[in-house]
Structure formats: structure tokens, C-alpha cells
Simulated scan of single mutants.
Amino acid sequence: MYNYLSKNRLYAVLFIAIVLLLAACGSDDNNDATDNDSDSNTEENTEQTVDSEMGEVTIPANPEKILAPYHEDTLLALGITPTAKWAIGESVQNYLEEELQDIETIEWTMPLEQVLSYEPDLIILENSFDSYEGTYEDYSAIAPTYVMSQEETSDWQVQLSRFGELLGKEDEAEQAIADYETKVEEANTELEDILEDESVAFMWVVGGQYFLFEENRHAANMVYSELGVEVPQLVKDLGETEATWDPISLEKLSELDADHVVILGLEDDEGIETLNNSNVWQNTKAVQNDQVYHIEDQSNWTNSGIKAYEQTIDELINIFK
């Protein structure tokens, strides 16, 4: 009896060992297959050669150090932190500082020494090189350099989609645009209930001068065309946006018939003091009805990125709640 049990146990042990060995081999085969799949996926996610305004450029896979001066808004919308942020001296895009406050700056003229110092994996530039110190050849010698088309430079949705394609973030780009469209739809309904057919003008006061936003100037374009806010007659009379933004005279502001006026800029600016002491300004409809509002930071209002627009929508809703 004892011998019988021992042999059976021996056979059982041998059987289990064989099963485990076969399982291990199968696991190795699966691991090899997984590794092969992983290698295959890695190969699929390698560099890609695309067309840009300056011809073909090879975009590296998963670049970690990206320079896209003035278009950090788009990178952040895709969940990417730039290696440096656009600046003019001490001035930066303030509305992005909550996310970029610890990121070093790069001068808006893109000095070659600064660019070199950041050792970028990828550089993304606007289609015009007028403001850059270097040439395309200079920058492309440092890192692969993608030059946007005019449409990609000026239309944030086109730009966001293109960046998504270049950086393997197509899903993130689609989701960001879908979320934005939902936000616009909700804000449109809310503002329609609050303002009805009342008009709103937007004016930037800086250095004692007054800049009235045309219908398609920066964030005003979104407010008027997407949120459906009524355009004052004087704003309509300004016509299409020109490349040069000319100040409007105090005397001309006497014609401003807006029901509401949003003033952007520091409240201690000399221009604000002049307005407060001006009979011309004090007699406008919005002032008479106590419908003038102040927002100190104009940075999101003078930009056209998705994050800029979302912040503008939030501020506008908060003003009129």
C-alpha cells in the first residue's frame, strides 16, 4: 500500500512539473509575442516625415523638449509642457502662468544662443520669420524645425489638430475641441438669458491710450461670433481688423453706444484716470447706467488659443452673473 501511494505521488509530482514547465514555455512564448508587439508598436511610433511651410521635416518620436514660442497654449491643451515659454523681456503670457510659472523664458526673437541652450528636440515656428533673429537654416541646424502654415498660425483649432498629429496626441486634440464646443454652447445659452439683445464693447487701456476691439480682433471674435454677443454700432463701424492696431481717440469714444463696456488693463493706468475725469466718457450710455467693468489682465483677451478663449468665457460669465 505504501509503495503504491509513493509511486502515485511521484507520478503526480512529475505530471505537475511537466504541466508547469509547459505553462512556463507558453508564458515565454506569450512574453516573446508581447515583446515583439511592443517592439512593433515602438517602431510604429517612431519619427515621421511631414510637410511644413519650409518643406519636409522629420519629427522625432515622443520629443521631450519642444519649443513653440507664443503657442504654448496649444501644447498645454495637449498635456505637453514646453521646454521654455515665450517672453518679451519680463512680459509673458500671464494667463498661462499657473501652469508655466516654473518654466524658463525664451525671448520672442528666438536668439540662437538661447535656443541652443535649451537643447530642443523639436522647434515649431510661425510661418513668418520677421520677428526671429535666425533663419530657418539656423534653427533646423539645432533641431528639427516645423514651420506652420498661415492657417495653422492664425487658427487655433487647425493648429491644435495639427500639433496633435505631429506629436501623437490626436485623441487629446479631438477631446479638447469637443470640450471647448460644449463650453461655448453652455455659455451661449447663459449669456443669451442674461444679456438678451444688449451690446458689449471691449477696450484695452494701456499707456494712456485706448484700443477698441474690432469684431474679429483676438478674443472679441470668439465673443461676438461664437457666443452671439451683440456688437455695438461703433465697433461695427471700425470694420475689419488690420495688422496694425490703432488707438481710438477719447472724442471718438463719445460715439460708443454699447450697453456694457469691459475695460482691460491696470486700473492705475493714466488712461483710466483720464476717462474718469472726462465729461465725454462720463456721458456714454454704459457709464451712465453703471455698466463698466474692469479686468486687469488682458493677456488671454489678446490671444487666440483654446485656453485663452476658455478663460475669456469664464471671465465674461462671471462679470454678468
Results as ranks from 00 to 15, higher is better:
Gln282Lys: 14
Val223His: 00
Leu125Asp: 01
Ser117Gln: 12
Gly55Cys: 09
Trp156Thr: 09
Val92Thr: 15
Met1His: 04
Gln209Ser: 14
Asn8Val: 06
Leu191Lys: 05
Ser249Phe: 05
Lys307Leu: 15
Ser149Arg: 01
Asp130Trp: 02
Asp237Arg: 05
Ile80Lys: 10
Gln233Ile: 08
Ser40Phe: 13
Ile59Val: 09
Leu96Ile: 06
His71Tyr: 12
Thr105Cys: 06
Ile272Cys: 07
Asp246Met: 08
Lys85Thr: 11
Thr244Asn: 11
Lys321Ala: 08
Gly79Leu: 13
Ala219Phe: 08
Pro144Gln: 11
Ser40Val: 11
Tyr2Pro: 01
Gly55Arg: 07
Val147Glu: 05
Met148His: 03
Leu166Glu: 08
Glu296Ile: 05
Glu230Ala: 11
Gln159Leu: 01
Thr182Glu: 15
Ser38Glu: 07
Leu212Val: 14
Ala141Lys: 14
Lys65Glu: 08
Asn41Asp: 15
Ala201Leu: 07
Ala178Ser: 12
Thr244Ile: 06
Ile123Leu: 11
Pro247Val: 01
Tyr4Arg: 11
Val280Gln: 09
Ser38Tyr: 12
Pro60Leu: 11
Gln291Pro: 09
Leu21Glu: 04
Asp193Arg: 12
Glu97Asn: 14
Cys25Leu: 15
Trp108Gly: 06
Val292Gly: 05
Asn277His: 10
Ala33Phe: 11
Leu264His: 08
Glu251Val: 03
Asp35Tyr: 13
Thr135Glu: 03
Gln114Leu: 04
Ile177Ala: 06
Gln114Pro: 05
Gly207Leu: 04
Glu165Tyr: 03
Ser161Ala: 13
Phe202Gly: 01
Asp179Thr: 04
Asp193Leu: 13
Ile66Ala: 01
Lys285Glu: 15
Glu152Gln: 15
Pro82Phe: 02
Thr58Ala: 11
Gln298Asn: 13
Val57Trp: 08
Leu14Thr: 10
Gly208Asp: 13
Lys285Tyr: 07
Thr83Tyr: 01
Gly26Pro: 00
Asp193Lys: 14
Ser40Cys: 06
Tyr139Asn: 04
Ser278Phe: 09
